[in-house]
Design a protein around this nucleic acid. Sequence first.
DNA 1: CCTATGATAGGAAAATAGTCTTTTAAGCCA
DNA 2: TGGCTTAAAAGACTATTTTCCTATCATAGG
Lengths: 206, 206
Amino acid sequence: MQHGDVWRALDEIATRKGLTPSGLAKLAGLDATAFNKSKRVSKGGRPRWPSTESIARALEAANVDYTEFASLVAGPSCPTIPFLELPDATRSGLFNDLGLPDAPAWDAIEFPGPNRIEGCFALEVTDRDLEPIYRAGDRLISSCQADIRSGDRVVLKTTKGQICIGVVARQTAKRLDLNSIADGRALPAINVEEIDWMARIIWVSQ
Amino acid sequence: MQHGDVWRALDEIATRKGLTPSGLAKLAGLDATAFNKSKRVSKGGRPRWPSTESIARALEAANVDYTEFASLVAGPSCPTIPFLELPDATRSGLFNDLGLPDAPAWDAIEFPGPNRIEGCFALEVTDRDLEPIYRAGDRLISSCQADIRSGDRVVLKTTKGQICIGVVARQTAKRLDLNSIADGRALPAINVEEIDWMARIIWVSQ
DNA sequence: CCTATGATAGGAAAATAGTCTTTTAAGCCA
DNA sequence: TGGCTTAAAAGACTATTTTCCTATCATAGG
């Protein structure tokens, strides 16, 4: 969040309403010169920021949400989450000590996005093994922080480097039973000690 | 966006980092008293706002995104989108003249949030007709503004009051061919004139 | 061409936020 | 208990922002 971003966002708000910066200031009950371009740097070159109160009044007048203003300030980009194609998820070093995705190891994609995406990552299906449930190109938004209960769909990697996707049938301290997503048949039981990481599939693109 | 909300959000940022308001101020390179509770109203009862620059420095120091700060200011609530259980989608009057969901007719659920959710709505599956693709309780986030191409999964309502969910097989000016989501078999062709509304299914909760 | 209106630059005054300092209270530790 | 550190309130002072005022420029209408 930088000085120029804030002013750009205010200009954008004004433009959206078909106003000039001074028009927006007047509409907000402020002095017409409050948002003047000539006042965005004070003499001496020091950047001048609009006060929080002025921003609040301008947003109120323009009927714009503060979160929307913030996303204008942040720029055109969506929030991004870590992303890999499913076969690449067999790599090691994807997660840090806290069990969260370790950014350098991942690509990033824009996800029309949760505010609390910590611990979320996306895996793209590349083959047809999971049809008709998941098709090639579908993106599985998964969370390694979500609680996992029976019936949930999960993706996990074993210490042997195998990726498993299934529906949780039974979960005990030592063993995890998964059913196939496609036909519901039981998959080979997995020893909990052999699970490198496991995440619940929360959303799937269609 | 109100005075108290801004200060509450700053307090929340501090708490998340295990800091007090004064600790956060110091970390941001500001005077330790900058965020004092005693400085939140000036004598005379006039509310006192933190400056935009101070907020920027605090967020920088705490490594918090401005959009996240804004959502804290906006309150604990996620953005919501219109929501109905699938059988209720047969009702009329769900969409306004622009083809967007008409809020009063819908419930609302929190959706971990897109910024651009205009035209999106959620439908909850209540029966097992669509298993194993969609299970009871799954929520279909759909958009009536998204472009629709072959292979996309769509939900539509006919003028006869019937809800159809399927995969677009072929789309012409007069006719829409859908395949069953479950087994891919062709469904009866739909006359385009009989389509009341149609939306592409974008995301599905799992 | 002239006039009225709105946008904007620039400077000075007024209002508001930040800093500095002192004081009080609470927690921690020997 | 005493000494140390941190948080926080209150007041005076400094820095910055907003307002107020004037002048310039561009544009639309008569």
